[in-house]
Design a binder for these strands. Structure first.
Ligand SMILES: [Mn+2]
Ligand SMILES: [Mn+2]
Ligand SMILES: [Zn+2]
Ligand SMILES: [Zn+2]
Lengths: 137, 137
DNA sequence: TGTTTTATGCAACATTGTTTCATTTAGCAA
DNA sequence: TTGCTAAATGAAACAATGTTGCATAAAACA
């Protein structure tokens, strides 16, 4: 069964606050990666700055990860369970729909190891697919 | 020998203007992908809006391509010659340095074909490597 | 319950990008 | 070379996104 918002906060030693619980619930129900604005739209009233800080904290603590999609908008998605402040492990591809703009985690598509160019040191890699998503096809 | 700024404008049927010539010269000398701000810093005075439009036009006509690097900043680099309004062909990886923030085209690293997830239609893909660049190592 | 630490709300500011419109310039033809 | 026309530029106004500093409120804990 999926973790609850409270479980996630406890697991990552984060204080239980109204904003955090609500934001986590939104992520738990989402089928795609969410931008700052996507989340804001779920609220009647919410301080923008608090949301920025909430997302930053979640990202730092391994609750959510950035979903790189080649668009100008930064989006986040829930981490898959074993991430922490010290070890993010979201080595999967992301799909970005040209049509609806949604960004979807492709958990099944692993990011292959690559050879670094001469003189370069690698610390990670992203993989982005673009095209038309299942819903838009 | 590398194309000159004027050659590039003529090749893409673009009017020769002072701004365009100067911007192209900056790209021709650059060793990394450039953000709007990077370019602005090369000028004593330059209208921001004109630069936005110049970059947009160049991108549409196949003169430059977006260098997706997972950072919040949009960067561009010169296309490698055979791109046009109708066919961009910049299927290479980009390296983003965690240390200096520079983004470098890795022309030698091709982006492999991938299998689309069920129900999805692919139109392209990005590949981003991150780590420490040769200069920062 | 009271104390300490952390999160929130608000103001002010910075950066990035778009749209509209008047003016200037490039390319072209007379 | 001159004048015309289409395109590019410059300026203003606006929108979206993100950051910092500080006072207040709330959570955790003894
Ligand atoms: Mn993901
Ligand atoms: Mn490139
Ligand atoms: Zn779609
Ligand atoms: Zn570097």
């Amino acid at each position: 069964m999926p973790a609850s918002a409270l479980d996630i906060l406890v697991q990552h030693s984060l204080r239980k606050t109204t904003v955090r619980m609500q934001v986590l619930d939104i992520f738990l129900q989402a089928k795609e990666a969410l931008s700052h604005n996507d989340i804001e739209l779920h609220f009647n009233q919410l301080d923008r700055i608090t949301l920025y800080r909430t997302l930053k904290t979640f990202e730092e603590k391994g609750v959510i990860h950035k979903a790189i999609d080649g668009s100008e908008k930064l989006k986040y998605a829930l981490c898959s369970g074993h991430c922490s402040e010290h070890a993010h492990e979201d080595h999967h591809a992301h799909f970005h729909c040209d049509h609806c703009g949604k960004t979807i985690c492709i958990e099944s598509m692993h990011i292959p190891a690559v050879q670094a160019p001469v003189g370069f040191q690698l610390s990670g890699a992203y993989r982005v697919l673009k095209g038309t998503c299942a819903a838009c096809s």
